[in-house]
Nucleic acid binder design. Structure first.
Lengths: 227, 227
DNA sequence: CAGGTTCCTGACGGTGTGTCAGATACTACC
DNA sequence: GGTAGTATCTGACACACCGTCAGGAACCTG
């Protein structure tokens, strides 16, 4: 829950500051929140490229100048949304960590993880997509968020993988973090393109089964049960 | 939508047309090409969101008005780039189709496919990222390009997968197209985030090995050789 | 309700968009 | 080589968005 000490550029005070340096009160925080909500809503409806401050402000029933009171630009607002989102993603790490990963119950864990990924991505796709794009384009602020979200899960899975290496189930010589990273990438990307797959006539259920099997096999080195 | 500035004399013609309805000649095609090249270059350097017509034009040594002579907007120029890119991607399908997919040489095919994906994505990442984003945001024009590129590969891999199902190597009951789609998604996304992985200290080589193994196992149902 | 604080916004100079009409460069033909 | 005809380019314009600031409005609190 340590959302307070987030890096807020200037470090003289870990309080949240408006553009003019004041610390927002109740009313200010409320409009800030309203702006965030409308930013997310508009990001869902329109494209990232066409997301304009003026539209967000209009939709939120305020003026552009007010927006700039709380965020230096649109990116920064999305960054806040992304930060909140990455927090929500902790549930994924919990599934991976909790296990179990052995035998038939292990496969069910893989299934749960896949399901949770789909759900999580489905309800945060618009923001996560921007995180992905900005990260791939080298934006450091977004990369940090992305790491906070995915590195946790990857690390958890890598840990599980290491365990199975030590048991001799997974061949040694493979980098557990690479194994986990690939799995997480797959989960993220497929989740993000659910619609696209459905358009090809591929059922979400079939995707999930295919993914659960790959997750289980890669991480535990064991053959998944027959479908 | 297209504003069809030309009075509806003859509308349909599979010829390429400039904004004023004329068919571009040699000189026109040259500046169109120059604009495309600079569009790609600028997309590499700056972010998608900050890609401006005026900058492309300036960089290409021409005026914004000229840009609009050949493309209705920036998206449309990127669409052309994407279309060319998807053509380059046919090499990936060829690898998948050519095989072989059985035994040790089969694993080498998987390795070749992974390597080709990395190379292809590496040299077209900026355009492909936009294709991905726009597709995920529901843009139909980009979805078609994406399908043209990935569906081909996926179909090829699904065909291979079907073969191994019929041989009893892969359990039946799994949708081959889902299997292939997941694999292709993984290849695409990991390729796109090479830099990100390296930042975590994961070696590209380790990623490739991990991916080749997953491709081989998922598609052929056979255990990959020990690393 | 006076005085202080927090919050909001109108107004503005700067930049990018997208569309013309007209200027300019090329080509073909005499 | 000159000229008509076409292809190509661009200056100029009206409009939209950005990002800033000074000052006004709303909200305390006593």
């Amino acid at each position: 829950m340590a959302d307070a000490p987030v890096d807020e550029t200037d470090v003289d005070d870990d309080e949240l500051r408006a553009a003019d340096g004041r610390v927002p009160g109740r009313r200010g925080m409320a409009t800030r929140q309203k702006l965030l909500e409308h930013t997310e809503a508009m990001l869902r409806e329109s494209s990232y490229r066409e997301l304009k401050v003026i539209d967000i402000a209009r939709e939120a029933g305020t003026s552009p100048a007010t927006f700039y009171q709380y965020f230096p630009d649109v990116e920064e607002a999305i960054l806040v949304l992304a930060s909140e989102t990455s927090h929500d993603g902790e549930v994924l790490t919990e599934i991976a960590t909790a296990g179990p990963w052995t035998g038939a119950p292990g496969y069910e864990t893989a299934e749960r993880l896949v399901g949770a990924f789909f759900e999580f991505w489905g309800s945060h796709s618009s923001v996560l997509r921007v995180v992905d794009l900005a990260t791939a384009q080298g934006d450091d602020r977004f990369r940090q968020i992305r790491v906070r979200l995915l590195n946790e899960i990857a690390t958890a899975l890598a840990q599980v993988n290491r365990h199975f290496v030590s048991k001799g189930k997974v061949p040694s010589g493979l980098d557990p973090m690479a194994q986990a990273g690939v799995v997480v990438s797959m989960l993220a990307h497929v989740s993000d393109h659910q619609m696209g797959f459905e358009f090809w006539g591929i059922k979400t259920k079939d995707l999930q089964v295919s993914m659960a099997r790959q997750v289980y096999w890669t991480i535990t080195g064991q053959k998944p049960p027959a479908p």
